[in-house]
Nucleic acid binder design. Structure first.
Length: 364
DNA sequence: GACCCGTGGTC
DNA sequence: TGACCAAGGGT
């Protein structure tokens, strides 16, 4: 028998399933996870009953493209304010959007709220299968599989950026992304165990987050190093192969601080598009693809009040700030007067929170 | 498949 | 210090 050949577990027919290299990977990783799992607020502690699907779902949506460190305080705030999915479903749109402010990718918040309402109106219990979960707003292939595995114990194949990286290295998959995803998913399917699929998924993600990271593979402390093809080649960090990134264009825009007796005029951005559905300062129409017009919303004695720079996914924006403090009537269009002393409660996305800070710092 | 969508941490 | 990156989904 050669190394890598299937090893019969025993001769009895009921145990005829062979132990394979894939089983070794899962077993080794789960053993590592039992010792090194991160202690995260949304995870069940040892001895806890099954994880709460609501908390698993909420954490998974918050964690989409977002770091654990950034999510923790938002997760605590949401679960404290809305302990059950039915509580979240009953909240107002503006409350949910404001509570999400600063976390980014605001379409997630709208989908989160829509999903909560869908679950609440269907009886208040999350569906238990990957296929049913996948149909809910904001749940794509990754999140549906993760909830099915973690909350309900289904053997779902969970592939996020961590799993992609770990699997691409384990099997030295050198097809560039995104084409490599077909082979990566097939390999992930092969090594996903029948039991403890949720722990396995979280173990892969913990490994990717703490050991097998993008910049450093840390093979010396990796439980999978012995069977890792990329390590055998000596260049683990070369996997997965990524396409070249496009440069981010620089954009310029203006935002306008319109003040009247201690209140500032805020607008709500359209539901679609950048910072969709969020409260904001009026602006000159800048987008990720185009500079603003430079035009203020009305003629007045506008004073310059500095600028803020902010990086978005597709553009680097320099936003110059203009101020009028003796406004009398309402500006044209929809909006609301917001007390300047409570600007921190307006739920401004980070760009406009920084702009407000800049304006207020300049007034002193 | 390509493109759009935020933010903060990291080295 | 700035480029890279993160528990992706929707269109």
């Amino acid at each position: 028998m050669k190394v890598g050949d299937p090893v019969p577990l025993c001769r009895r027919p009921c145990h005829s399933r062979a132990v394979t290299a894939s089983d070794d990977i899962a077993a080794g990783l789960l053993a590592w996870y039992d010792r090194h799992a991160r202690d995260l607020p949304w995870r069940a502690r040892p001895g806890d009953p099954a994880p709460d699907p609501y908390r698993v779902w909420l954490s998974e949506v918050m964690l989409q493209q977002t770091t654990v460190a950034a999510v923790k305080s938002y997760f605590a705030a949401f679960t404290s304010r809305w302990p059950r999915v039915t509580d979240l479903a009953a909240a107002g749109d503006d409350e949910v959007m404001a509570a999400w402010a600063g976390l980014g990718y605001y379409a997630r918040a709208r989908n989160l709220h829509a999903c909560a309402r869908a679950v609440a109106s269907a009886g208040g219990e999350f569906p238990r299968t990957e296929a049913e979960l996948r149909a809910l707003p904001g749940l794509g292939a990754y999140t549906a599989a993760a909830i099915a595995a973690i909350a309900f114990g289904e053997r779902a194949v969970v592939v996020d950026a961590n799993v992609e990286r770990v699997v691409a290295r384990l099997f030295a998959i050198d097809t560039p992304l995104p084409a490599a995803r077909i082979a990566i998913r097939a390999a992930a399917d092969r090594i996903t165990p029948e039991r403890r699929a949720g722990d396995f998924a979280q173990a892969m993600m913990d490994l990717g987050a703490t050991v097998c990271t993008a910049r450093s593979a840390r093979c010396l402390v990796c439980p999978l190093a012995a069977g890792c093809a990329a390590r055998a080649r000596g260049t683990p960090e070369a996997f997965p192969v990524k396409p070249a990134k496009k440069p981010r264009p620089a954009r310029r825009g203006r935002a306008f601080w319109i003040e009247r007796s201690g209140a500032v005029w805020l607008v709500t951005r359209p539901a679609r598009g950048m910072l969709g559905g969020m409260r904001a300062l009026p602006d000159d129409g800048w987008t990720a693809g185009r500079d603003g017009s430079g035009e203020p919303p009305f003629a007045a004695d506008w004073r310059p009040a500095g600028q803020v720079s902010h990086g978005f996914t597709h553009a680097e924006l320099t936003l110059s700030l203009w101020v009028v403090t003796d406004q009398v009537g309402d500006p044209p269009g929809q909006g609301e007067w917001w007390p300047v002393a409570r600007i921190g409660e307006a739920g401004l996305p980070t760009l406009f929170a920084r702009a407000a800070e800049r304006v207020l710092a300049g007034k002193k």
